[in-house]
Every structure is written in structure tokens, then in C-alpha cells.
């Protein structure tokens, strides 16, 4: 009876049509202009075949950006999950119901802030002269501490803001996941005189393996959106030490030379890489 209803077709087709058009047109167009030599100042491009792609592979800044992006992914995904597990477990272990909901609310605020706000808040906190975080260092040593201008620490400092936003948010989710677990295995482990950390390492975390993998996946996808933080905090600098792929594509297509086709080629390569990697991971973990 119900599969004869017109409802699925009526309800699904407008939304899917719009999504398909809005997603496919830019994607196809990105591929199309990546075979041209368009620039912002000169919109009528000629077809140059694979020239943009060939140029990319001998572009050392592009290779550098791949490295920065990969470092960023590993750093933010790994540390976010570590922070989330630590804080989530501590909340589950040491906080009563009221404290849990109060803490959860506080831990949600960083991720809700616009990335531009979060980036500015921390950029000012790390300001070598007036920053509240660098102040103790300056007070003790008399030297200003400029983490964002030091090639060795700039990327890590920006990553800290990302982990601050996502790690605390995921800690709340880890807490909720722990709360859904049945209490019996915990009690059994305690009766066997397991230490607290053993209960989590050998009982709780293995039971939550599937949702934790999903969390890691979500973070991998969201870590691609590093641009806002980097744009406000370092603009890819010092030098090109924090220039991720999207930052480089932006500066090629927009700021420096307006080489829109070249930037588009980069975007297409990113699109292919992320689509393949994420689809494989998604299908693997769901199978």
C-alpha cells in the first residue's frame, strides 16, 4: 500500500534535483576550466590540455602545500581524538550528573564560535606584546614570545585552536557514548580488580570502536576546512610553512596572480583525492 504513494517522489525530487545541479555544475566546470589558461583579468581562456596539471607536479610550493595539509590532518585528527577521549572519560569517571551537563555546555561553546572569531581570539591571546597567553613567558624572561611567526611553531599553534574547538566538542560526544553503555561489563571488570585505566582501555573503548571510528572520519572531513583559521592567524606564513592546499589554491586563484585555471586544477586534484579516500574509508567502515 505505502509504496504506491506518490510521497517519496514528490518529497525527494526537488531536493535531489537542486543538490545535483548545485554540486555537479561547479564540479564539471572546475574540470573544464582546469584545461584552459584562464586568468581573472582575462576571462576568455584557450584550451591548454593537461598543462596546468603538469606544471603542478613541478611546482615546489604545491608539493610543500601537500605536506602541510597532510601534517595538519594527522595532527588535528589525532590530537582531537586524544583530547576527546581523555576529557570524556574524566567526565564520566569524576563528574556527577549536574557537573556533566554544565561541563558539556561549556565544552560546546568553542566549536559553535565562528572560526573567524576563534582564530582572532587566539591570535590576540598569542600576541607577542599584549597576549594573555604569552604574558607569563614575557613576564618571567623579559623576552616576547612570538609563536605564530616562528616557522617551527606556527602550524602547531594554529592546530591548537582547531583541537580546542573539536577536541572539547568530541569529549562531550565521548561522554554521551559512555553513558549509553550497559553497566554490567564495567562491574565485572571492577570485580576482577581491574584498574580504572584498564577498564577503559580493555572494556569501554573496544565496545565503542565503531562510533569512535565514525568520529575520526567526521574529523578527517572537517579538518579539510582549515582555511579560516590559517587565513586569519598566519595567512600561510611565515614563508609558506602553514600554507595548506586550500590556502595555496586561494592565493594562486585570487590574490597573487588570479590564475584561476591553475587554481582550479589544484582544486580538481584535491577533489579527486578526498572523494576517493573518504569513499573508501566510509565503505570499509560500514561494511
Amino acid at each position: 500500500m505505502k509504496h504506491k504513494s506518490t510521497l517519496p517522489a514528490v518529497f525527494l525530487s526537488p531536493a535531489l534535483l537542486i543538490l545535483a545541479v548545485l554540486a555537479l555544475v561547479p564540479t564539471v566546470f572546475a574540470v573544464f576550466i582546469s584545461f584552459q589558461d584562464r586568468e581573472l583579468s582575462r576571462p576568455d581562456g584557450r584550451f591548454v590540455g593537461l598543462d596546468n596539471y603538469l606544471a603542478l607536479f613541478s611546482d615546489r610550493r604545491f608539493v610543500n602545500a601537500i605536506g602541510v595539509s597532510l601534517t595538519w590532518e594527522v595532527l588535528t585528527v589525532g590530537l582531537t581524538l586524544l583530547v576527546a577521549l581523555l576529557i570524556g572519560i574524566l567526565m564520566f569517571e569524576y563528574a556527577g550528573p549536574r557537573w556533566r551537563s554544565a561541563l558539556s555546555l561549556m565544552f560546546l561553546t568553542p566549536v559553535i564560535l565562528p572560526r573567524v572569531s576563534a582564530a582572532f581570539v587566539w591570535k590576540f591571546a598569542f600576541h607577542p606584546l599584549y597576549g594573555i597567553i604569552t604574558w607569563p613567558y614575557k613576564a618571567i624572561t623579559g623576552q616576547p614570545l612570538d609563536l605564530l611567526s616562528d616557522p617551527a611553531t606556527a602550524l602547531g599553534t594554529v592546530a591548537l585552536v582547531d583541537i580546542w574547538q573539536w577536541g572539547l566538542f568530541f569529549a562531550v560526544i565521548v561522554l554521551k557514548l559512555l553513558e549509553t553503555l550497559p553497566p554490567q561489563p564495567f562491574e565485572a571488570a571492577r570485580l576482577d580488580h581491574a584498574r580504572t585505566w584498564q577498564v577503559y582501555a580493555y572494556v569501554a573503548i573496544p565496545m565503542l570502536k565503531a562510533p569512535l571510528i565514525s568520529l575520526a572520519f567526521v574529523k578527517m572531513v572537517e579538518s579539510l576546512r582549515a582555511f579560516d583559521l590559517i587565513y586569519v592567524m598566519t595567512r600561510g606564513g611565515p614563508g609558506i610553512t602553514t600554507e595548506t592546499l586550500d590556502m595555496y589554491a586561494f592565493s594562486q586563484g585570487f590574490i597573487e596572480s588570479g590564475r584561476i585555471s591553475y587554481a582550479s586544477g589544484m582544486a580538481v586534484l584535491m577533489m579527486i583525492a578526498t572523494s576517493i579516500v573518504f569513499t573508501v574509508i566510509w565503505k570499509r567502515t560500514r561494511a
Binding site: L19, A23, V25, P26, T27, F29, A30, F32, I33, R38, P43, V221, L224, R225, F227, L245, D246, A249, F250, G253, I260, A263, S264, A267, V268, M270, M271, T274, S275, F278, T279, W282
Partner: peptide, 18 residues
């Protein structure tokens, strides 16, 4: 879901031209 896999810059560049 896979729409979220698209890097924003890959959507923004062609849309700018369009």
C-alpha cells in the same frame, strides 16, 4: 553525505567563474 567531502575551495573557484 559525500557533498561534505568536496573541498570548499573546489566549489568556490568554479562558482566564482559561473
Amino acid at each position: 553525505l559525500s557533498l561534505r567531502f568536496l573541498p570548499p575551495v573546489a566549489v568556490a573557484i568554479p562558482l566564482m567563474v559561473i
